[in-house]
């Protein structure tokens, strides 16, 4: 049997994969918060505070979960969005966890695991989390707002703009260049939203246009 090559239609726009970086970033912050809670709990969990008669099934589940997290540590370092947030220099502690897992020793495993978490493998400075979280949420709110207006959903635009403005003002940027780039991006997108809103008939839009104008010009600074 032979296969015929199907020619690509000339005028067909190729389907572009959606950019998931914002979703990844938001999920990453949730992950960091969860990891921080785990770190605190493991730290507070004294080895002699563990019930020795652990159900074998539960014990197996704990080992599997700990192994999965251990695999993940090396992978997280390779994700550009996580770069700088995770410490890749903890290979010794990771090996300790792996060997405790091989020995099937839950107390040793937890002790080594606690060292990994406390040592900063998946621990982020709180202020850095907050700054990045604001930036990330800011983009998320913005993205949702633009998507809504693209599908002609103008409800709550004023509220969305207020939420965006509040978060943007709290956001700390890593450099002047990145702030400039971000401001330009939001300005361009907001101008496009404004243009589309102005073209809408039968909408009471004076207040929203005024809000948009104020926000667009405030992004100049």
């Amino acid at each position: 049997m032979s296969f015929k090559e199907v020619p690509t239609p000339v005028n067909e726009t190729p389907i572009k994969n959606p950019d998931l970086s914002t979703d990844i970033e938001v999920e990453m912050f949730a992950l960091q918060e969860e990891a921080e809670k785990l770190r605190q709990e493991v730290e507070a969990l004294e080895t002699d505070g563990i019930n020795n008669n652990i159900d074998e099934k539960k014990k197996g589940a704990i080992f599997t979960q700990a192994r999965k997290i251990t695999y993940a540590v090396a992978a997280l370092v390779a994700i550009p969005l996580a770069a700088g947030l995770f410490n890749p220099e903890r290979t010794k502690e990771i090996k300790d966890v792996m060997s405790a897992l091989v020995d099937n020793n839950i107390a040793e495993m937890l002790a080594a695991f606690g060292v990994i978490l406390a040592a900063g493998t998946i621990y982020v400075v709180r202020s850095e989390i907050e700054n990045n979280k604001n930036r990330s949420l800011c983009r998320k709110i913005f993205k949702t707002m633009v998507e809504k207006t693209e599908s002609n959903n103008w409800d709550d635009l004023c509220v969305d703009l207020d939420n965006f403005k509040e978060l943007f003002e709290k956001t700390v940027f890593s450099s002047y260049e990145s702030e400039k780039k971000e401001r330009k991006y939001f300005q361009d997108e907001l101008s496009a939203v404004k243009e589309k809103l102005e073209a809408q008939p039968d909408l009471d839009k004076a207040d929203t246009i005024l809000k948009l104008n104020t926000l667009i010009s405030s992004l100049n600074h």
Partner: peptide, 8 residues
């Protein structure tokens, strides 16, 4: 990973 940490 998030779900795994929660379960752990």
């Amino acid at each position: 990973l998030n779900a795994t940490i929660k379960n752990l």
